[in-house]
Amino acid sequence: MSTEQVIQLDKVNKWYDDFHVLKDIDLIVEKGQKIVICGPSGSGKSTMIRCINRLEAHQNGTIIVHGTELTNDLKNIDIIRKNVGMVFQQFNLFPHLSVIDNISLAPIWVKKMPKGEAEEVAMAYLEKVKIPEQAQKFPGQLSGGQQQRVAIARSLAMNPDIMLFDEPTSALDPEMIKEVLDVMIQLAEEGMTMLVVTHEMGFAKTVADQMIFMDEGRIVEQAKPEDFFNNPKSDRTKLFLSQILNH
């Protein structure tokens, strides 16, 4: 069985002025893989996935997505962004647009889809995240969990092959976390390639093929979930896991 490498990070480094956020990051993601990234705040995990669709520029090393290298080349950036979806901690829905317009916006303007068709696509994804009845509402009228599901639908509407999740449940009230995780699990079962930054270890155990622990800008540990949780190699991982699992 041949595996296709969809994301390759090779010796990626990034600085904010003097602050070295990413240090020699190497990472290979295969098609259909689900990778969960955890680590203390400020460890660079968000920055790493934000580099993958160039919301942040890395300073050296190479990032290749689907065989296209991310450089200053705007065409390449466009290609990659079309194939990589992203879900944010703060949802970042467009408050001035209705739910359906939020979802159909990119298909209409980026994919040049006719409006009617784009709205059909949008409705289909709304059904997938189980809130088709909210289509005409505005983001401000929805609960956090609903907003995040709309945000997922919005990303999916561009039909990406890779989804990035940047702490998707951190801004949610506890009772809403499950509805978002359920959607993500469903997505995983359908074979989507996913990179998820999260502290939801239950979710990680169910879904992840690979666990990554980051600290101080480095990937400290990368392992299969059963190894990662049962016998972590690094002391820092052990400490982190003990803090996060026994709070």
């Binding site: 919301l55 992203m86 970042n92 467009f94 001035h96 980026v110």
Partner: peptide, 25 residues
Amino acid sequence: KGQIEAAQSLGLNYWQTTRKIILPQ
């Protein structure tokens, strides 16, 4: 800033982001 990032991550370019997302708000 998240509004701009969300628009970018969907593949909207500068002018589309400005016209559809930033300016109306």
